[in-house]
Amino acid sequence: MPAFVGGLASQPMDTRPQYDPTPAARYDLAASLAHELKGTGVASNVVSPGAVLVEATKELVTRISPARGWGDMWEEIRPNAVSALIPNDQERFGEPDEMAAAVAYLCGGYAQYVSGATIRAGGGLKVSRAAFCARRNGEPGPRAVRDTEPASKITEIHDHETLAA
């Protein structure tokens, strides 16, 4: 079984331009380190988690819920918060054990051929700055862009600039 070098890196959002370059650099570092470690039996990979439901996340979402009209009970708040803040294909927050499972996969025998990779464990989340800001302000805004969409369909990503038609 190969040794594992890696880390966790949040998924980039344009609302944090001062922070996002750091975790983004981890992706390139994992790939560069994988090439450097060629022949050693050590793999270098990254797990990039989406919004994970930990106590701090639940407290924050519950605190901002009244101003957003998401409900009073967690059973009401959760789906509304997911829809408004982190729309994703799974329609929920991730769980800590799901992130741990991604790391465990990379450390296990089934990932012996995986090297220089980034596993995006975000439920299919990728929200543009314009869409995030619009949702934050309660406006419909441009649509969220999912990880699974081909580049030819990605439009209106950043302040209505068209990157690909």
Rank of each mutant, 00 (worst) to 15 (best):
A30L: 04
P150M: 06
P66L: 12
H158D: 15
S128C: 11
P17N: 00
C107T: 14
V46P: 03
D72P: 02
Y19I: 14
I154E: 00
R129E: 13
P66S: 07
D159R: 13
G108P: 00
A131Y: 03
V114F: 07
E75T: 03
A101E: 13
Y27A: 07
A117E: 04
D20H: 12
C133W: 15
S48E: 06
W74K: 03
I64W: 01
I157L: 11
A131I: 05
R92Y: 01
A101Q: 09
N45H: 02
T155R: 00
S32H: 12
V82T: 05
V46K: 10
G141R: 10
H35Y: 05
N88Q: 02
P23W: 06
I77G: 06
I157E: 10
C107L: 06
G41M: 06
A3V: 14
C133S: 15
T40G: 08
A134S: 02
G123W: 00
G109M: 07
R120N: 12
G124A: 07
W74A: 01
P2E: 01
S152K: 08
R68D: 10
S48A: 13
P23G: 02
P49R: 10
I77Q: 02
V114W: 07
T57V: 14
P49A: 04
G94L: 00
E149Y: 08
G138T: 03
A117Y: 02
E76V: 10
L33T: 06
G69T: 01
V145K: 04
T118E: 12
Y19E: 03
T22E: 13
A34D: 02
L106R: 11
N88H: 05
C133L: 15
G50L: 03
T118N: 08
G41I: 08
G6T: 09
S10F: 06
G138A: 02
E149N: 00
R78T: 05
K58G: 06
T118D: 12
D20I: 13
S44K: 09
F93E: 04
V42I: 15
N137P: 07
G50N: 01
P2F: 07
A56P: 12
P66K: 09
S83F: 09
V54M: 14
D28C: 08
S10N: 12
